[in-house]
């Protein structure tokens, strides 16, 4: 079988003297949604950071479309087609919504207006609040701007670190729906998520991490159906 579109293979990395991930593998195909779940401290966000290059690898490799990108810096990975939405501080608070999007298109400003127009169909908020500073938006609105900013970089892979943190429960479903739309457009989506049950219900692939190791891997439905997974991580 050919390599998946994006794969972090047998990644080992960590902070200081201790390793957090021990040869853990994460992968996602184009048009697919992959979700990383697991208990607190399992290394979910660390895995995300390692794949995006925010942490130096101590073992393993990251490949995008068959190319080894393990040594690229995060900005270079953005240029190579990876979009990243950090968990916090993911907008420019004093810039307007419109300017936030423009910053997403900083490297490639071609047809910026058209791209913003397109995204505005997915996220109407971009139009409604276009002249408002992003710092004044609510959590859910801000998250939409953050995702849209990342989409402005025209990524082939979109990585979201807990996109529903700080978003009111009613809006979580809506946000997930939009993420599914993005994936449907042929983009690979990798999500770290606390709302494991909800996220797995629509994920093509799920990775359950425990203490920096892959514990279970399978389709979202498989994992939801697996009694072990349910017992240990989904509260029965």
């Amino acid at each position: 079988m050919a390599d998946p579109f994006l794969i972090g293979e047998a990644i080992t990395c960590g902070y200081g003297d201790t390793n957090i991930l021990h040869g853990c593998t994460i992968s996602v195909e184009k048009g697919e949604i992959a979700v990383i779940v697991g208990p607190n401290g399992a290394g979910k966000s660390t895995a995300m950071k390692a794949v995006f290059g925010l942490l130096p690898l101590r073992g393993g490799a990251v490949r995008l479309g068959g190319q080894d990108i393990s040594t690229l810096t995060p900005p270079d990975r953005v240029a190579a087609g990876m979009g990243f939405v950090p968990q916090t501080n993911n907008v420019f608070p004093s810039l307007t919504v419109r300017e936030n999007l423009e910053m997403g298109a900083y490297l490639c400003p071609r047809n910026m207006g058209g791209r913003i127009e397109q995204l505005a169909q997915l996220f109407p908020i971009l139009k409604e609040r276009s002249r408002q500073p992003a710092g004044e938006l609510s959590g859910g609105q801000r998250q939409q701007v953050a995702v849209a900013r990342a989409m402005m970089t025209q990524p082939k892979v979109l990585m979201l670190d807990e996109p529903t943190a700080g978003v009111s429960p009613i809006l979580v479903q809506e946000l997930f729906a939009k993420i599914q739309e993005i994936a449907a457009a042929g983009i690979a989506v990798l999500i770290v998520e606390q709302n494991a049950r909800q996220a797995l219900s629509f994920a093509h692939k799920g990775f359950v991490l425990v203490q920096g190791n892959n514990r279970f891997t399978g389709t979202g439905q498989d994992l939801l159906g697996d009694p072990d997974v349910r017992q240990s991580f989904l509260g029965g």
């Binding site: 995060p74 900005p75 501080n89 907008v91 420019f92 004093s94 810039l95 300017e99 910053m103 990342a150």
Partner: peptide, 23 residues
């Protein structure tokens, strides 16, 4: 100007500016 906005963006959020490809 794009450069001016990039400067403001960098001042606002250094890490995100890097992720947006601002040098």
């Amino acid at each position: 100007t794009p450069l001016g906005k990039a400067m403001r963006a960098y001042a606002d959020n250094e890490d995100l500016a890097l992720l947006s490809g601002i040098n």
